[in-house]
Nucleic acid binder design. Structure first.
Lengths: 208, 208
DNA sequence: ATATGCGTACCGACTAGTTGGTATGCTGTC
DNA sequence: GACAGCATACCAACTAGTCGGTACGCATAT
């Protein structure tokens, strides 16, 4: 019975379509009709599940958090024993993700927040939560690496975690401007170099 | 005779209005009518000077390059004798610019390229030129600092120059998401710390 | 078993307003 | 009187959102 399975999946199809369409054209330039066409559903279905386009935007940001959250949670870099190795592993993983076309590896919430931070507070907050939560997931490892090496820093683990996200978001903008991923990988390399310098020479190698 | 002065300035007023309106609402969400209202001109004047909205976008990006180019060319950090001190001075200057509301200190071309990189090649290229030219202006100082210190690096002056722009663009996104400049300043601080580590301890202090 | 009742999921034509763009005309300057 | 600079009026296409209606699953009663 495909009927039971088919039910309630217009919402999912719309959210999945939103991820790719909005990353390609931006939030404002994406029309509801276009979203419906990409998802293969009707406008009636759209407004049955979302009371407005803005609500779809919020839901898309949350959906993005879930999808990427699952991706990073199951990534292999968590296996490293040394916390700094896990952080570097995370960044290498981000670099490995820079494959395919620009719309495929760039960030949904980074794109959306640029367009709606002043006009759609609900979207801004959902995007902020997505970025901030993702950064917060890095904090424990950064904190542990600092403690491991008795670092008396004038910066916090939280600020460094957010800085990694700033570099990534900025790398995406340059990739969009230049039309390729190369420059983004270079920027992540600079970030990795920064971390290795911060935590001392040979810091990663002296892991267990 | 205000007439002679008033002539030909609809274009300037439109470009100036574009800088602030597009930075606030984004390119797609900004309508031609809105732009005209903000500039205090009519639609006829708009399409007299620009044959399409996209052409206005390109012109706005070029206008942005000119305005910011003049700002940075006349900035005080060029006075430092040491090239590294000039670079750090540039970043401190960028930090000092993080004043007022978010729309006032964020970057026009970074905002525009996100929305139009796939749909408007002319705008993408104009934004790319703006970012790349600005980065290129930093290259000579970075190269000089590398030579001064006999740095045998596995990265180029060009890639570090672009990395600074990535950090700044990413910092703007975080500022938009969080609704404040604080996080952006933190990220620039991390970047300054990276440069000081890269060029060796006490590198800036041993300038003339 | 089957009839009744009801809620959720979905459809697609419709509307009021907005969009980028055009056609035409007026006004001052060379 | 030609032409640049602008204004006004207008248009077809598109916009987000609405609305009356259908299809179907599920619970309870009979």
């Amino acid at each position: 019975m495909p009927k039971a399975a088919a039910r309630q999946d217009a919402r999912q199809k719309l959210l999945d379509a939103a991820l790719s369409v909005i990353r390609t054209k931006g939030y404002s330039a994406t029309s509801v009709d276009e979203l419906c066409a990409a998802a293969g559903v009707t406008k009636g279905a759209f407004f049955h599940h979302f009371k407005s386009k803005e609500e779809l935007g919020v839901a898309a940001a949350n959906h993005w958090s879930q999808v990427t959250g699952a991706l990073f949670a199951s990534a292999p870099y968590h296996a490293h024993a040394d916390p700094l190795a896990r952080i570097i592993g995370y960044l290498e993983f981000r670099k490995a993700l820079l494959q395919g076309g620009v719309p495929e590896f760039t960030c949904l919430v980074g794109t959306m927040v640029q367009e709606s931070y002043e006009t759609a507070p609900a979207i801004r907050e959902a995007c902020n939560a997505s970025i901030s939560d993702h950064a917060a997931a890095l904090e424990p490892d950064i904190g542990a690496a600092m403690r491991d090496r008795d670092l008396a820093a004038d910066w916090s683990a939280a600020s460094l975690a957010l800085h990694t996200q700033a570099v990534l978001q900025g790398a995406f903008i340059l990739a969009k401007a230049k039309g390729g991923a190369g420059i983004a990988a270079d920027s992540v390399d600079h970030l990795i170099r920064y971390l290795k310098l911060l935590f001392g020479p040979g810091a990663v190698e002296r892991q267990s």
